[in-house]
Write a protein that binds this DNA or RNA. Structure first.
Length: 113
DNA sequence: GGGGTGACGCGTC
DNA sequence: CGACGCGCCACCC
């Protein structure tokens, strides 16, 4: 699919404040789970990191992007925290912050360790 | 048009 | 845990 980046950027803007998504999740929502890799590629060439909240995207483990393209991982961390998201050692608790359309309402136990 | 690349994900060891 | 390896895909030379 061409111009996937447009879709991705649009998707980013649909993420509610205080929530995050994973690469795989975006890929899945866009129709193909295997797009996850391409997603990362696209975010890397993000023309406007301010306009498109790419900082809300983390990997499947909840880790921030080490190669964040706009000021580095620290910037991403700061932005997340500014959204009210608790970042623990450059990781977020997906159980709490992952944005899910069909919220299955999971138990928010101490999934961390 | 062909080939390299990566901000991924998942299974193995 | 951490380290590899492999598959997957769109993007950029």
């Amino acid at each position: 699919m061409l111009n996937l980046n447009i879709k991705v950027y649009k998707y980013l803007q649909s993420i509610p404040k205080g929530k995050v998504v994973t690469y795989g999740q975006i890929a899945e929502d866009l129709g193909n789970k295997n797009l996850s890799r391409a997603i990362g590629n696209i975010l890397h060439i993000n023309p406007d990191p301010i306009k498109y909240p790419c900082y809300k995207v983390v990997n499947n483990k909840g880790e921030l992007s080490k190669n964040f393209g706009n000021g580095g991982i620290n910037i991403q961390k700061e932005r997340l925290e500014k959204d009210g998201i608790i970042v623990n050692n450059y990781k977020v608790n997906l159980k709490i912050y992952q944005y899910k359309k069909s919220s299955g309402n999971y138990l928010i136990e101490n999934y961390f360790k």
